[in-house]
Design a protein around this nucleic acid. Structure first.
Lengths: 231, 231
DNA sequence: GTTTGTATTTCGAAC
DNA sequence: GTTCGAAGTACAAAC
């Protein structure tokens, strides 16, 4: 990885045309050839970037820009589809290269899938007497996250979201409409479950006769660990 | 901005739980307090990050981790809602700080808007005998980029994209369906125009009876300059 | 302040 | 390879 701190001007021509006036910035050139330009704020998004695969070529500035802006070097980063990032470097304050090696990669925990798995193991969290029939129960328009059965034998369709929003309620509504047309399943009621559920999603769910449940992920995980310890 | 290249282990607890095993990475600490951790690939997204506002505090590792992993320093980055990024530093290969100042910011240039303006000025580029009726012709479901009329007086709806993809064809299809229900407009035919048009967009357009046209942006701009010179 | 929509989205999985 | 959906999405505009 090469780290360059320099006064530079950046021009991008590709999906849009963008221009960064001359200022001091960090330019990162990574081992995969990708290039990014960072300002001194914002953690997530670079000011400008070129995703790999792309190729960097260094050239001299034309005499006028060299004279006018003090540009000493021009980096041209090109993608296969012609997208171009042009970095015109003036003063270079820092320039260093480092060997990093391949990263072992991120281990994620707690995504929607895990939430679904935990709820599948502990369906009673969603309501007294509920039992799992099937995960990812397939309907013609897609899979229902959890299909449960309550104490009286009625089916319950559950949609699990990390953050419950309106579209999730719409999705569950479509499943319920469909399932309730199947005499082997009907009547099916719905539960919308999420770590968070937006106010409007709650309102819509209630309006559709769908129950909603807030899920305490940490508590569920605790139950799971307790299980592992017990058995 | 502080640049640190170090062997480190990273743990994030917040909206999810994530873990990065010990490896050499770049850690960026920006002037707004934000922190990001980069591997030696991918331009856009850091491996891990903490968005501002957040606060960084440095502490000693507990003796066991210090002994086991060689951790010499622990950085704890906390957001207001409790999200925490913990960076456990072992070997530090590089550590430097730089004053960058406030960035003047990105200037985006709407190529699509310009393309539309140029085509409005030169509608015959899209076909013999075509003349402009209106730009941004409003339908109940949104504006059609260009409404033209051909030599026989029939209307032509034009959708302009820098990169034509399937969704653009779908959009134009909706406009055409609607406009063709208006007896004052019907029959309306469609032209899908773009600097690039993806193969599947071409296929879909053809299938829908929509013509597509590749636009030479530079040539159009040339025509525009020529006009300015003439008049 | 909250909701909605966009992004040079990126990224991964399913098909 | 293409399409679809999720993301610790981030980010800006509209309400």
């Amino acid at each position: 990885m090469r780290l360059v701190i320099a006064r530079c001007q950046v021009d991008y021509v590709g999906r849009l045309t963008a221009h960064l006036p001359m200022a001091t910035r960090l330019v990162l050139v990574k081992a995969d050839g990708s290039v990014s330009v960072h300002a001194d704020d914002r953690a997530y998004k670079p000011l400008n970037w070129m995703s790999p695969p792309c190729t960097l070529s260094v050239s001299e500035p034309d005499p006028e820009t060299a004279a006018a802006l003090g540009v000493t070097e021009v980096w041209q980063v090109k993608a296969k589809d012609g997208d171009t990032l042009r970095i015109s470097l003036a003063e270079v304050f820092h320039d260093s290269a480092h060997e990093l090696g391949i990263d072992p990669g991120l281990q994620k925990d707690g995504v929607e899938a895990h939430l679904q798995a935990l709820l599948a193991d502990h369906p009673s969290t969603l309501g007294e007497g509920l039992a799992l029939v099937q995960r990812e129960y397939l309907t013609p328009i897609g899979p229902v996250d959890l299909l449960l059965r309550d104490g009286s034998g009625s089916y319950v369709a559950v949609e699990v979201k990390r953050r419950g929003e309106i579209d999730g309620v719409e999705q569950l509504t479509r499943y319920l409409d469909l399932m309730n047309r199947d005499p082997r399943l009907a009547p099916v009621r719905g539960i919308f479950a999420g770590q968070q559920i937006k106010p409007q999603a709650r309102t819509l769910a209630a309006d559709r006769g769908i129950e909603w449940r807030l899920i305490d992920y940490d508590a569920l995980r605790g139950m799971d660990n307790a299980d592992e310890r017990l058995f």
